[in-house]
Computed example of a mutant assay.
Amino acid sequence: MSSAAASTSVEDAVNRRRSDLIELSHSIHAEPELAFAEHRSCAKTQALAAERGFEVSEVAGLDTAFRAVYGSGPLVIGVCAEYDALPGIGHACGHNIIAASAVGTALALAEVADELGLTVVLLGTPAEELGGGKALMLDAGAFDDIAAAVMLHPGPLDIAAARSLALSEVTIGYTGRESHAAVAPHLGVNAGDAVTVTQVAIGLLRQQLAPGQMVHGIVTDGGQASNVIPAHTELRYTMRATNSESLHELESRMAGCFASGAVATGCEHVVSETAPAYAELAPDPWLAERVRAEMLRRGRTPVPAELEAEFPLGSTDMGNVTQVMPGIHPIVGIDAGGASIHQPAFTAAAVNASADAAVVDGAIMLARTVVALAESDVERDRVLDLWQKRAS
């Protein structure tokens, strides 16, 4: 099968399943589920692949993670599906679009797997918003046989080689001693004051943060009654930076701020990671350029390559994947009326006509990109050589 024929075949396959893919996107959107509890969404994402003959199995000991495999070719391609939602605002990150487009990509590639020497692996990756499903799956070996991984994400713009920030998140617990706030305040050790001191310290630190570093957090436990000096409080803070090295520097400085609250008030404090750290995206240049060409072919207007770094995505555990293998995580634009991800208006937009177009366009673009990779002797050998080095 020629490259042109294979590219046409995968595009036709997506178009034939258009209604099924859009129905899947809308169904996941209608029943949003949070990290590691995406049982309905996981089952829905598996269903069309299982019907097509993909062999489905659980991985990493995670109830809502899966691998669905089709074909037996030497070039193993992973297609990542996300389907977790956000607390309170549902699919404001458009993961319903990600899941449906991933299924469309996998179904399309199954049509040409034998001719192109492919093994297609649809990966259900839970807990991207909080929990690091892909990082856990990487550690568990779910990506060990995969030579290259692809996925897409919706957003306000089309970006072929999207960038992201490295991220880590921690909880900080302060423990003091209760006492009546009026009768015997001198007998208390105020864990609420520890929170205040810590937040002031972080506020002062912000002026000295390096470019690209940022911190944001919330109080998850501030005490239970205004007339009881709180013996326990808790913060949750997210730290981000342009790369993992800068993130480690930021974590060290933030550790001093967390400790300051304890030192100033006499409390004990414990800092705990809430999930694996997220590395920054490292999009494969060749794959990115193929995606850019596909965006233009579909009538989209991707951000110019020289400006892509000015539009960081936020953070994603797909960064961990792209740090160890060739991968791509383009942004496919939808019309959200000026809203951005993680806003309620984006939730509504994630099932509008432009979102449906993103499902179909995204699946076609990713599938045709994989076909181009499989048909290029140079690039195919490159990713297989990288995989062999990783596996040895």
Rank of each mutant, 00 (worst) to 15 (best):
D114L: 00
L386V: 09
R253T: 09
A102E: 06
G203N: 04
A60Q: 08
N320V: 13
G337I: 04
G333W: 06
A50N: 00
C42L: 05
L250S: 04
I218G: 05
Q207K: 13
C267A: 08
A161M: 04
G299V: 01
S244G: 04
R206F: 11
G217E: 08
G319C: 14
P32M: 10
A225I: 01
Q323D: 00
D356Y: 06
T242H: 03
L123F: 09
V112W: 03
V359K: 04
G256K: 09
V10R: 06
V183T: 09
V321E: 02
R206W: 10
H342I: 14
A81V: 05
V197C: 02
L204E: 00
A43I: 01
P330E: 03
V378T: 04
L157N: 05
E375C: 10
V69D: 10
V270I: 03
H329P: 11
E115L: 00
T125F: 10
L204W: 00
E375P: 00
R368S: 01
S7F: 00
D144Y: 06
A288R: 05
E249I: 09
R380K: 11
V150W: 01
L122C: 07
G362F: 06
T125Q: 10
M214F: 10
S260W: 10
D381R: 12
P74V: 02
A339H: 14
E38Y: 07
A293G: 14
D12I: 01
R390A: 06
D335Y: 11
E38R: 15
L287S: 02
P185A: 09
P326S: 04
R16G: 00
S19T: 12
V59L: 09
G131S: 11
Q224D: 15
F54C: 10
F54I: 12
N352H: 10
A277R: 11
E375Y: 01
P276V: 05
L152S: 06
Q343E: 15
D221N: 15
L109Y: 01
